[in-house]
């Protein structure tokens, strides 16, 4: 899996990740408090300025925006149809501003930086005995490690069914996929414990 983080050194990359996350939360709240087009348009422009200077190149930047823009435009059309033009413009600007700010943060905060922030956020939980911060990192790594294995298994099951002349169907593929994958849990857990990865 290739992360959406963009490995460059723009001015936004140099800002502390925590600051960027705080700004994003503040912006998210602010755009819902604002309901006039002018301040929202300014927010959207500021978002665009951040997003397009986050170092990903124009082409990649536009490619990432398309799925989000499709939903935003659909919402705006829906609003235009059933409500007023002013409300449609407000919804369009508000959502666009949010998407742009969020996209900029995603492109400029690395997976490692995110994990550090998550570990920090998990510290109170750890002190309360509810979760272990190190486990969050281990679990995340396990997902990234085993997604390609499960995809490979999915393809193998589909092929095996095709070889037997069965047209691959959702349920017939899903059941062996889940059972075989979950059965691995025992041996993976045994390996983790045998290597002493987790503190008692």
């Amino acid at each position: 899996m290739k992360a959406l983080y963009v490995d460059r050194q723009t001015w936004q990359h140099r800002l502390p990740p925590r600051l960027k996350l705080i700004v994003l939360v503040t912006v998210s709240v602010a755009v819902f408090l604002l309901d006039r087009p002018l301040p929202l348009a300014i927010a959207a422009l500021a978002g665009a300025a951040c997003y397009f200077s986050a170092g990903m190149g124009l082409r990649e930047a536009l490619r990432r925006l398309i799925p989000a823009l499709v939903t935003i435009v659909a919402v705006a059309l829906f609003t235009l149809l059933f409500q007023s033009a002013a409300e449609a413009v407000t919804a369009l600007l508000r959502l666009t501003a949010l998407m742009l700010f969020a996209g900029a943060v995603t492109a400029t905060v690395s997976i490692t930086q995110f994990m550090d922030e998550i570990t920090l956020a998990a510290t109170p939980l750890e002190k309360a005995g509810l979760a272990r911060a190190a486990d969050i990192g281990l679990a995340s790594a396990l997902v990234v490690r085993f997604v390609p294995e499960i995809l490979g298994r999915y393809e193998a099951i589909s092929q095996a069914q095709a070889a037997r002349g069965v047209r691959p169907r959702a349920l017939a593929t899903l059941m062996p996929l889940i059972i075989l994958t979950l059965r691995d849990a025992d041996s993976i857990a045994a390996a983790i414990d045998a290597r002493g990865f987790r503190q008692p």
């Binding site: 992360a3 959406l4 935003i72 997976i111 995110f114 994990m115 990234v144 997604v147």
Partner: peptide, 24 residues
């Protein structure tokens, strides 16, 4: 969590914080 930190784990290879503020 993996989606939020920018791994393309959501359907269609999406991810990032944007999906958490989008209409759906």
């Amino acid at each position: 969590l993996l989606a939020a930190i920018g791994l393309p784990v959501l359907s269609g290879g999406r991810g990032g914080l944007g999906v958490f503020v989008a209409p759906p």
